[in-house]
Design a protein around this nucleic acid. Structure first.
Lengths: 203, 203
DNA sequence: GATAGTAGAGAGTGCCGCTATCCATCCAGG
DNA sequence: CCTGGATGGATAGCGGCACTCTCTACTATC
């Protein structure tokens, strides 16, 4: 309960309707918002500041859903202090060019692209210069996943539901992806082992 | 530089070879290890304690690569304090049964499955009871990704390289996946928009 | 009227990831 | 041989963050 008061103070939850100077009323919308905040913190691992950004993006009324999704993604991708390797930046730009994305040439202009460049920079720093080769197969698999995401979101009714489904699908989805990826690794590596038991590179 | 001393104290880096009581020698292996630690912290967002677990898994000599990968995945999936929804646990068990994974019936026995159940529990708590329907398409996409991962790892030479590629591929891969997923969303939602411009659910 | 409960706000707490200080020692330059 | 700067090792301190505690003013209830 003190945590709720803290969230109220931090502006993560709207103030209740004051029925008297020391009595406020909270409705279902407050509870829903509280659960969303807990979801972002517990599963998404977001900081309070990031949660505030996400909520601000949700509550902005005059934006398309597309830009809302972008804002959410920006908020959940806090930039790290990694210095970017110019070669990694080139890798990202080449990847975008390959995918026909011309608008994202400025890698540092977005937290998401910055995060991608940072990840590839760190990969290079530990000697994995060719990690970029994984970008295309990753995108291929993620297209299937994104297809499911879009269908899931489109199945929502009201606009508010769509927005929340977007946030949930993005953030909880990331956590689910991490976990399911483990299962996929197990399955694929088992297939590889079954396929060529004598030249097993994984055991 | 003080940070390195701190890591030494925390046991994340092995002590250098003392050439004299106050002079230690550090070789390339130390530098490599340091960069790995920074990679885990900066990109993976791991805590120092988790990094210690990952390194312990790497340094354990008498395990198969398969169990090493499992140990790494366990270390990077720190369990949250979310209480699990029994229905979400059932969802996870049904998913595993569907995929022929019989060994993971104990959901709380592994950080990874616990994380998956926690994510689905939180999804349920915000009203997304059918988020579990995404598990199968997620796995389908992740199999493609895991295929690329395994090929990438198998292309490594020495056993140490394979181990490090596993860690890098898992942890940096998660970060890359998060970023690339955004691009996939953009592409897929644009395809949807192009396909049926009048019933656009995303704008 | 006594009691219990609430809103609101400020201060305090505990943990975590460093960072700064201290001292004994050692090595290099003169 | 002497001195200044650097190093290893250990201890203590700091700053940020996510709460949590406490205090006051007030009111609704018994």
């Amino acid at each position: 309960m003190p945590t709720i008061k803290y969230y109220l103070r931090e502006g993560l939850l709207p103030a209740g309707v004051l029925t008297s100077p020391n009595q406020a009323h909270y409705d279902d919308e407050h509870l829903r918002r509280l659960r969303l905040v807990r979801a972002l913190v517990d599963v998404g691992g977001l900081s309070i500041a990031s949660v505030r950004e996400v909520l601000a993006a949700i509550d902005t009324r005059d934006e398309s859903l597309h830009s809302k999704l972008g804002a959410v993604q920006e908020a959940i991708s806090q930039p790290s202090a990694v210095e970017l390797d110019p070669l990694a930046i080139e890798d990202v730009q080449a990847f975008f060019a390959r995918q026909g994305e011309t608008e994202c040439v400025d890698v540092t202009g977005s937290n998401v692209t910055h995060m991608l460049a940072a990840a590839l920079s760190v990969a290079r720093s530990v000697g994995h210069d060719h990690f970029r080769d994984l970008l295309d197969p990753y995108l291929e698999g993620l297209k299937i996943i994104a297809q499911a995401d879009v269908e899931y979101i489109a199945g929502r009714g009201s606009r508010d539901d769509v927005i929340e489904a977007m946030v949930v699908g993005t953030l909880i989805g990331d956590a689910v992806l991490k976990a399911v990826r483990r299962l996929a690794h197990v399955q694929v590596s088992r297939d590889v082992i079954d396929g060529r038991p004598d030249s097993d590179p994984l055991n």
